[in-house]
C-alpha cells in the first residue's frame, strides 16, 4: 500500500480535517474578538490550524506534491507540539490563554501530541517501494 488516503488513512485524514477546522475556527474567533488578551497564544493557534490544513491536504493526496506537503506539516506539527507544550509547562505566563498545543494538547485529550507520531508512522508505512 502506498496511498496515504486508503484504509486507516481514511480515518487519519478525517481526524486531521477535524483538527484543522477546530484550530482554525478557534483562532479566528479568538483573534477576531480578543486578540489583545493573548496575541502569542492566538497566533500559535492560527499557525496550528494552517499546519493541520496542510497535513489534511497532503494526507488526502490533494495538490502536486502531497507526500512532501504531508511530511513537512507533520514534522512541523511534532516540533510545534513539543516546543509549545514544553514552553507552556515551563513558563505558563507566556501563554495566558490555551492554544491547541499548550500542555502538549491537554485540552484536546492529548490527541495533538499523539497525532504527529501517528502521522509519521503512517507516512513511513505507506512509503512507496523503490
Amino acid at each position: 500500500m502506498s496511498s496515504t488516503k486508503s484504509g486507516f488513512g481514511r480515518a487519519l485524514v478525517a481526524v486531521y480535517a477535524l483538527f484543522a477546522v477546530a484550530a482554525t475556527a478557534r483562532s479566528l474567533v479568538q483573534l477576531g474578538f480578543k486578540a489583545e488578551e493573548a496575541p502569542v497564544a492566538y497566533t500559535l493557534s492560527a499557525i496550528a490550524g494552517l499546519v493541520y490544513i496542510a497535513a489534511t491536504i497532503g494526507l488526502a493526496e490533494v495538490g502536486p506534491a502531497p507526500r512532501r506537503t504531508a511530511w513537512a506539516a507533520v514534522v512541523f506539527e511534532l516540533v510545534g507540539v513539543l516546543s509549545v507544550g514544553t514552553l507552556s509547562v515551563v513558563d505558563s505566563e507566556l501563554f495566558p490563554d490555551a492554544t491547541v498545543w499548550s500542555g502538549y494538547g491537554q485540552g484536546y485529550g492529548w490527541l495533538p501530541l499523539v497525532l504527529p507520531f501517528v502521522g509519521v508512522w503512517w507516512l513511513l508505512r505507506t512509503r512507496p517501494a523503490r
Binding site: 488516503k5 486508503s6 484504509g7 486507516f8 488513512g9 481514511r10 480515518a11 487519519l12 485524514v13 478525517a14 481526524v15 477535524l18 477546522v21
Partner: peptide, 24 residues
C-alpha cells in the same frame, strides 16, 4: 461535517472509511 464525512466514507469501501464517519 456529517454530509462531508458521509461523502468521504463513500469514497472507499473500507473499515477506515466507516471509522472516519463514526468519528465525524
Amino acid at each position: 461535517i456529517v454530509p462531508i464525512g458521509f461523502a468521504w466514507a463513500l469514497g472507499e469501501r473500507s473499515r477506515g472509511s466507516m471509522a472516519a464517519f463514526a468519528l465525524v
